[in-house]
Structure formats: C-alpha cells, structure tokens
Design a protein around this nucleic acid. Structure first.
Lengths: 354, 354
DNA sequence: CTGAAAGCGCTTACAG
DNA sequence: CTGAAAGCGCTTACAG
C-alpha cells in the first residue's frame, strides 16, 4: 500500500507460484498451443480468441518463461557483446546503446571481453555462442575484424552485427563507422588553420581503424595540396605511453611539426605531456587533434579538439539491426541510418604559429 | 589442420548434433540419472562408474545444456550485475573482476545499469531476477544501499552480494570497502605536509560513500588535532562540473584553503580547472587530493594524488563470495579477504606554501 | 482457425 | 550405489 509500484509487484507475484501457459490455457478454455500462438504473435488466431487470451495474460501478469522457450526454440533471449576494447568509455557507451534497444525487445545483454591474441579465443567464442544459444552477437572493433571469429558465428548460424570502420560484410551484418571521413575532417581543419608540417601518431597495424584513419587523414591533407611526410609519422599503439613517446620523437624533428594528429585521444593526451616537457604551448606552438572525443577531451587544459564517433547511437543501431534481421523485417533493416564521425573543435588546435 | 584450437573445435562439433545426456548414458551403459549425478558431482556414484562416464564425456566434448538444466533447476547460470555507477572505469573494472571469477565456474555475466530515481526500478529488478532466474546478483554502490531493491532479491530468494562502503548486511552478503579508512589516510597525508586550512568537496547525500569518506577524513584530521571548518566544505555531486563550481567557491574564501580533498577524482579534476582559473599553481599554492585513482590521475599535470580502491579485486571477491555461498562452502566464504583503500601519493599534494 | 501428442535436455523424488 | 517415471514450461509438426 506504500507505493503503487510495490503493490503491483506483489500482486504479480500473488499466487505464490507464477502463472504458466497451462494456467492461461485453462482459464481461457483453449489449448496451450493457442496461447503459444498468441505469445508468438501468430496471425492464425481468431481476433476474439486472441483478445480474450491477452486479457487473461494481462490480468495474471503472465510472462512466458524465457528458459522454457529457449529450450524449445533452441535459442535464448540473450544478446552477446564481444569486445576487446581497452577504452572503458567505449565499452560502457556501447553497452548503453545496445541496452536501449534490447530492453524494449525483452532481450538481455551478456558481456564477453576478450583478447585477440588469446590462443583460446575461438574456443571461448564457440563456447559462449553455443552454451548460451545466443539470440545474436554484436562485435566491437577490432575483434569485429577477425574473420576466424566470424566464421564460428556463421558455423553456428548465430546472427551477428559487426561494428567496424569499413564495410567488411553484408550490409545487414554491419554498422560502418567511416573513421576515414572523420580523419579527413581533422586534416581539413588543420590545413585551413595554415598548418603544413603536420605530424601523425598512427595506430597499431592490427587495427583496421588505424589504417582507415590514416588513409582518411592523408586524403584530407591531399585536398589542400598538402601531404604527409613519412618522417613525420610515428607508430603508436593507441596507448597513453606510446603517445608520449611518439610525440617526443616527433617534437625532436627539425623542422618541428606545427601540428600533431593522434589517431586516438589516449595518444593525444600523451602528446600534451610531451609538449609540456618540451616547453611548448598548446596551441601556440603546437596544435593537437585527437580521435574519440573521450570525456577527458573536455577536462584537459587546453580542451582537446577531437573527432567524435556517436558510440551509443552506433550500438543502438547495431542492436536494432540485429533484432530487425532476426525478425526478417527487411524494411526495418533498410531504415537503419548510417553513422558518421564529426570533428569537435576545441582549444587545442589553432592557427599556424608565426 | 591449420591450428590446433580450430581443429579441436571442429571435432567437438563433429557429429553435426551436440551430444546430449542420453548419448552419454547410452554409451556408458547407464541411466541418464547416473550421468546427471556425475555432472552434478554427487558423491553417490561408484568411482569406476564415474571415471568411465567422465571419460566418455571428455571424449565427446559433451557439456550439459545450461538452458535445460536451468529449466529443471529453476535457476540459470547467469550472474547479474546491477549498477548505477556513472564512472565507466568503475563499471568496466567491476565487470572484469566478476568475470575473472565466474568464468572458471561456468557462469556468465548479464549487465543491468539502472537509475535509483527511476520509478520503474523495482519492477525492473524483479523482472530481471525472475525472468532470468539469476544464479545471483552483485550490486555496486549506491544501488547496493537501497533496501527496497534488496527486499526484492530476498523475496525471490535470489543470492546476492552487495559492495558498499560499510557493513549493511550479513558478512556473507557483503564486500565492505571501508572508504573511511582511505579518506583518513588522505587527511593524515595532508596534515603531515603541514596543511591546516583544509577544504573538502563533499559528495551527494544519497551516497553512503560520501558520508563515509567525509567521516573518515574528519577523523583523520582529528588525529592531528586539526578540524574541518564547515565553511570550508562545499557540497559536490561527484561530477566534474560540480567540482569546478565547488572549488571556485572554496578558493574565493579568505583565508584561502591551502589544500582541497575532493571525494572523487572527477571533482578533483574540477578543482584543477578552478585553480588554473584563479592563477594558482598546484601544489605550490594549493594541494589537491582525490578519491578513486582513476586512469586520469596519472595523465593530469601535475599527476593527482588519490585514494585507490582495488575495484577489480573487490568484484572478483564479490563473485567468489556469491559462488561460495551458493555452494554452501562456509570455509571458502570465511577465507575471502577484506579489502582496503590506500593512498597513492603523486605530485598534486605538497608541503604547505610559506 | 484450433488441438493432442511428442519433444527440447535436463533434474527430482521415490524405490530398490 | 543405480534406475524408471514424471516433470520443468514452453514449441513444433501434423491433423483436422
């Protein structure tokens, strides 16, 4: 009586034992098969029958047991997220995005972090998919780029959606993030500020995103008639430490670069540290642009210009796509919009020093 | 033939159809009940019978179907994590900790972020626990402090472990983080550096941790004969923005505090911003200490002194405890060690300015 | 449009 | 120490 939510709950749990499909069938005076048809939205039920059954379902607060359905259907109501993302922000936002889509569909989210170098990876994935009879799987970069992992999903006929920087698979199995476009925008931003001696802190070769971002950056520079001097490229590892080290090396070059584009924010933050060590002011002596638009970007001083990827949206769309494909709803699949990165200009990038 | 992992997998999936308990029983020449006993580690099986069955299980790569077991046992092999943590680092580390314990036990992790203010919270939790027939639930602060949520878990007899800053429940249902001890250490650190005009950016009243941290801090100050002047307390909200605002207010006081303790790192980072705005150097003019030891702490300049909580360990232990309790293994429960915060001293805290 | 029977792959009393 | 039967709560062909 204290609060309505509470009393409803208690009512729902009323008869001690949860109602089953048999209870509903008995009360409705039909077979459980017919109730099952209603649950599964079969069109082959007379309207009056359906309405009567639905009324009883509602009255008893009945909800079909997912475990029992799972056993009969050989498929659970669990969506798996397989990720090897070191970035906590990314992980949490992707989970939020997926959940915002799955909740409405009565699906739950099971998380599975992994390491691509783990010799056990394929067995793990197989185990995960097979034991849980997953409804479907969503994969983040870079494990989303691993064809041996995808092969297992195919083998088990487990629906999946891959989030990756380029189209690696059929459209209904992909959310493409077009990282190259964001990097090109960063390049245009820097050239428009007058920068010509632009340096790049690249990413790990095993990440497709690193390749795409670099390509896009070079393309963007090209539009302004600039080019990326190979001497002004340092190969980073998407980590803060590698960012510090790469930036140190780049800032020791002569002539010194006037701007650094780091392929993720972690490394861009490393560039701040190296700039401070070298006594350089940002952006007075050196402009810095990152990629990710992590929460740190706004908290740094000066605030970091960075390419933003709408992570939450991307993963909501990935889940939407997974659900639409599972339902065979081609229209819904086709209606899922594309995502695009965009540059967030802040204080760390400014005009060429004179 | 390409890689051993791959070929083993293929072998495991060999006969197209997964082996079931019936296959094992037939091959072993026993009833499925006996196989079931072996699976469930019943002691009432002759050693030779058990060994023979285990050999066949191994040979066929048989693993019992969790869905079918779940239906019969009315309990799944899923552990739920219920959290309302805004801090991504915390969320990811807690997940990692739990997974490091659950994997060995054949359990999977289902995540459930929530908001305490959501009027739907209790129904959500009920739904989550009931539909999934959860093996158990782990709760992070501050939702772990919500007795109405806990009541639902009890009602459904769902095992749970609460992570919280103080003992709120029976020991076998708690991992206590003793935040007050860490805050006291921060206080001792600052007084030992000579600080007397120490300010506090407190946390939201609805968080027990905020209360505990403040208490501990005041106790630590008391040890050195110092005390916390109420005028030097600003009430923050555990967010960066609130940290900026509180620090601005504190730094406008006269006499100005020489040190600020912020009850989490987000707010401590806000204090950096306010100090910079006020033209104050850290730690020359102002010492700052935070709480969380987030990844940011090391990337800031100067690096932030902060109280560290071993989050990953805490949640591994929480999962260990959940499993041990479920098994009724009192020895294992008793063997789970306590966790304690500790101060990580870095460059943001220094001697009293003269 | 609707139902009786069998089955999904396990476990649980109950006997023996 | 071991087994035959019933049951967990659903769905799936197959009829009608």
């Amino acid at each position: 009586m204290s609060e309505s939510g509470g009393s409803e709950r208690r009512a729902a749990n009323g008869g001690r034992r949860r109602a089953t499909i048999n209870d509903i069938a008995r009360m409705a005076g039909v077979s459980k098969k017919t109730v099952s048809r209603v649950i599964n939205q079969s069109p082959f039920v007379k309207v009056e029958t359906r309405d009567a059954i639905n009324a009883i379902i509602k009255e008893l607060g009945y909800r079909p047991d997912p475990t029992a359905r799972g056993l009969a259907l050989r498929r659970s109501f669990l969506v798996g997220l397989i990720y090897n993302q070191p970035n906590p922000q990314y992980v949490v936002q992707s989970q939020q995005g997926i959940l915002s889509a799955t909740r409405a569909a009565g699906l739950e989210l099971v998380v599975h972090p992994c390491h691509r170098a783990d010799p056990d990876l394929l067995d793990q994935v197989q185990n995960f998919v097979e034991q849980l009879k997953l409804f479907g799987v969503i994969l983040t970069p870079s494990v989303s780029e691993d064809e041996t992992v995808i092969d297992i999903l195919r083998e088990y006929e487990c629906p999946y959606v891959r989030v990756a920087s380029v189209q690696l698979d059929e459209p209904e199995r992909m959310i493409v993030t077009h990282d190259s476009l964001g990097a090109a925008e960063a390049a245009r931003h820097l050239t428009s500020l007058g920068h010509e001696r632009v340096a790049l802190i690249s990413g790990p070769r095993t990440f497709r995103s690193a390749h795409e971002r670099r390509q896009g950056f070079e393309a963007g520079l090209g539009e302004a008639g600039a080019r990326l001097d190979p001497d002004y490229v340092a190969e980073g590892a998407y980590t803060y430490d590698s960012g510090v080290e790469c930036a140190r090396r780049l800032l020791a070059l002569s002539p010194r670069p006037t701007a650094i584009f780091a392929l993720n924010d972690e490394m861009a933050i490393g560039a701040y540290t190296a700039a401070r060590e070298a006594g350089l002011s940002v952006p007075g002596d050196l402009s810095i642009v990152g990629f990710d638009d992590s929460p740190m970007a706004e908290r740094l001083w000066p605030q970091l210009s960075s390419v933003r990827l709408p992570i939450r949206d991307m993963y909501r769309l990935a889940a939407d796509k997974l659900i639409a494909v599972a339902r065979g709803d081609k229209d819904a699949v086709a209606a899922i919009p594309a995502v695009r990165p965009s540059l967030v200009e802040r204080a760390s990038s400014g005009p060429l020093p004179r």
